[in-house]
């Protein structure tokens, strides 16, 4: 019976270890304010693109510089920079999740996830028209 116990204990230990690594490796949803308070730490910030202020992407000048302003869920607005090309469906996005860290007054994103009105299907007419306004 001893062997079974040993294996059981090792299993439990690995399970606990696994869960700790999962928590340790996870990130946190935060507002820009929280991210500012802890510069250099990676956060997920959810928000919407401030359409009125547009975006900056001039591939000829720098193909790895995409800048836009995002309003987070608490209403704070910060510039966000992505050192990559402009994401394909950026204009269609309803909601944005930026993953990255605060550097000075700018949020430097390593990744941008966009929630489009419907992913595998298209925008319904109304949503599309809103986007054009």
């Amino acid at each position: 019976m001893k062997k079974t116990y040993i294996i059981g204990l090792v299993l439990i230990a690995i399970c606990i270890g696994t869960l700790i690594t999962v928590l340790g490796g996870s990130s946190t949803y935060a507002s820009f304010t929280e991210a500012t308070g802890n510069p250099g730490k990676q956060y997920h910030v959810i928000g919407v693109w401030d359409r009125a202020s547009g975006y900056t992407y001039d591939a000829k000048k720098d193909p790895n510089y995409f800048l836009f302003k995002m309003k987070d869920t608490t209403g704070q607005e910060y510039p966000v920079v992505l050192h990559d090309s402009k994401p394909q469906e950026f204009e269609h996005s309803e909601k944005i999740v930026v993953i990255g860290k605060m550097e000075g007054n700018t949020f430097v994103a390593s990744q941008i996830l966009m929630k489009c009105p419907s992913k595998y299907t298209n925008a319904k007419p109304v949503a599309e028209n809103e986007g054009k306004k």
């Binding site: 696994t18 690594t21 999962v22 928590l23 490796g25 996870s26 990130s27 946190t28 949803y29 935060a30 990676q42 956060y43 997920h44 993953i99 990255g100 390593s110 990744q111």
Partner: peptide, 17 residues
């Protein structure tokens, strides 16, 4: 006081184990 999010670097988080 936390709101857990998926890892910022998924590859690293999965590869570790």
């Amino acid at each position: 006081k936390t709101n857990i999010a998926p890892p910022a670097n998924p590859a690293a988080a999965y590869h570790v184990m």
